[in-house]
Nucleic acid binder design. Structure first.
Lengths: 203, 203
DNA sequence: ATTAGGTTTAACCGAATGGTCAAAAGTATT
DNA sequence: AATACTTTTGACCATTCGGTTAAACCTAAT
């Protein structure tokens, strides 16, 4: 029973994840999720009372998954440059396996900015900030990184990693027209991005 | 009459633009657009037969508007560095006035990747490419730009400019938590981004 | 004043959608 | 086998939504 339970609920959850990520909250249909999970629509409401509830469960799971991917940046004991290389390699690899996540997340943040504030509440950026600073204090003399430009740098790094996936349709289209392959472009990007950023910040 | 015509149709179009950009195709409601334009819902269908037709009109207008903003990069007679500075200054300024466009465009591209291919059909990237190369042939010795890395560079530049707006809700939330203001962050970004990219590509 | 044209509206329609319900089916306990 | 409980289903409901229609309204020409 409890075994079968888990199976059904899990099947629903996975189906919901697929459909929501693909169509977004507004575009997703409960019937689609049910069909995709191979069950009756009423059973959806039996396990997750409303569409909102189901969506929230999916969204939170995905958000947690993503935040987890960022964590190593603050933990790993590496030099600045090694960390940058590590980040792009791991993060882009993650996005290669989940190429639709950026578009989904960005869109849903736009649709409901309040939700994200709730998620951010439990993260103490000042602490992470200080931790990061402590880790690399000695190195910083060799780089053009100040307290002012740090947020700019972080956003730029995120942008360089995430944007190609958020704009996949567009970039894929353009690359195709000049005879290039999106997947190869992404594969090369892991190295390019790291070198690019390192060069930009080095004194 | 024809004066009033223009006024009504224009009012509808502007209302539709606002609502579509805000809610996306799936989230937008014809009734909302009608109310926003101060007219009856039936009148919407009188001027634009279907929701799809209205949406396509809005989308194409916006796409054209954006592409126009990119054009100067290929025309202006400036050095590479001046062009990069010019681009970030102008493009970010444009996004400051239209902060919701990136999210809208990216989301709709995801929803219907076929549409973008149709739009790209009329743009000949190979020609723009060559034109750009001709313009800066003499300068290129001073920069680490090759045929291989050119697409990576272009995407990175776009990413650095567009991403903060596409992820506005998220970035705003994080900046707030460390006592920073999004608008100021963006204002400073014009200069930072240019310096960052120039430093990254300089030999 | 009447006619003819486009413009605007209220009322309505059918399909789709999120959600409910009562009954059926399945399972475990006694 | 009977009982009690959970899971699953088909049928159904209320509302929302894109879209239609016929009539009212407005304006200009005759």
């Amino acid at each position: 029973m409890t075994e079968n339970d888990k199976l059904t609920e899990e099947r629903i959850f996975e189906a919901a994840t697929d459909v929501f990520v693909d169509k977004g909250m507004d575009g997703a249909r409960m019937q689609d999720i049910a069909s995709y999970a191979g069950i009756n629509k009423a059973l959806l409401h039996y396990y997750f009372r409303t569409k909102d509830q189901l969506f929230n469960a999916v969204f939170e799971m995905i958000a947690r998954k993503i935040l987890k991917k960022f964590a190593p940046v603050f933990d790993e004991n590496l030099t600045i440059e090694a960390k940058i290389r590590f980040f792009f390699r791991e993060h882009i690899a993650f996005l290669q396996e989940n190429p639709k996540l950026p578009g989904f997340i960005l869109n849903e943040i736009n649709r409901n900015p309040a939700r994200i504030k709730k998620l951010l509440k439990n993260i103490h950026f000042e602490k992470l900030w200080e931790k990061l600073y402590e880790q690399h204090k000695a190195e910083l003399d060799n780089y053009n990184i100040t307290e002012d430009t740090m947020p700019q740098l972080m956003v730029s790094i995120a942008a360089i990693s995430v944007f190609p996936f958020a704009a996949k349709g567009l970039i894929e289209g353009i690359l195709e027209k000049v005879g290039l392959d999106f997947n190869k472009f992404i594969e090369e990007r892991k190295e390019f991005a790291a070198a690019f950023v390192i060069k930009a910040i080095k004194k």
